[in-house]
Design a protein around this nucleic acid. Structure first.
Ligand SMILES: [Mn+2]
Ligand SMILES: [Mn+2]
Ligand SMILES: [Zn+2]
Ligand SMILES: [Zn+2]
Lengths: 139, 139
DNA sequence: AAATATTTTGCAACAAAGTTGCATCTTCCT
DNA sequence: AGGAAGATGCAACTTTGTTGCAAAATATTT
């Protein structure tokens, strides 16, 4: 993993710092999306809150992570797949929020269906957000 | 309009107060969705911030308004159509956010298409959020 | 129409979330 | 190793959201 992390940072011409490595580690070591708060908790007292904010901003800008809209005022972030870059995202997949465990996951294989908007509207991006019970919680 | 407002409040067994009337007025007098902040601005210094929060909570609970998820940490609210009630929402329409004027609109006529989730996932609700250029801004 | 019961409001105090400037420390390059 | 560029932590601040409680407004009863 250390390997992969270095690669991501290098590819994006970002210097390799403790916080960046640690935060990427978090994203890589689990499937789901993370909110700012999650990261703060999981890194313990290791980094300043401000550093986490700035790190996420940088990752966002570089297209290393993408945001997931929510209805509870808490943006979540998830890793982009290989082929996302600075301005060009390719994250047109569905996002799932489990109302039991609270986890948010990228359903990378489920493509968002095309829709027909009223005339005059020009589409830039489409997000699809499904809430329900995830596989793990469905006992 | 005053008429309609009274009707909405009565139907939901809510007492008719200045703030509720004023906030409903805001929603009824324009098409788009409103964030908490918008309402605070548009009502001027008329009501306490806390009252706006509580009013929105009450309207949400009664099914008078619904939330629209966003990727910028600012929930937006829009009026439900006639047939929404306390527990039963029927707001399965697409939401559009204009990246020029910033307005968010309910595309009431565009129904969210069905999708096939991986096995084990159980769907409760689906949201679809389109960003782009709205009719008015498309010069 | 008053009196009373019920709700709603505003205030104050607080907690949580996010932003900015700047000095110091790290990383990277030569 | 030395120096430039960049990242971090701290402090101070703003903005956003929450809670308890007394006062005010609304609804209900007499
Ligand atoms: Mn995703
Ligand atoms: Mn809507
Ligand atoms: Zn779950
Ligand atoms: Zn527009």
């Amino acid at each position: 993993m250390e390997q992969a992390i270095q690669e991501i940072l290098k590819r994006n011409r970002l210097s390799v710092t403790d916080s960046r490595v640690k935060i990427l580690e978090l994203f890589l070591s689990q499937a789901g999306a993370l909110a700012h708060g999650d990261i703060e908790k999981k890194t313990g007292e290791k980094f300043d809150r401000v550093t986490v904010y700035r790190t996420l901003q940088v990752f966002l800008g570089k297209g290393i992570i993408h945001t997931i809209p929510t209805a509870d005022n808490s943006i979540r972030y998830a890793l982009c797949r290989e082929n996302c870059a600075e301005g060009h995202h390719h994250d047109n997949h569905v996002h799932f929020v489990c109302s039991d465990c609270g986890n948010t996951t990228c359903l990378d294989d489920i493509t968002i269906p095309q829709i027909q908007l009223p005339t005059g509207y020009q589409t830039q991006q489409v997000e699809m957000l499904v809430s329900g019970i995830c596989r793990e919680c469905k006992s």
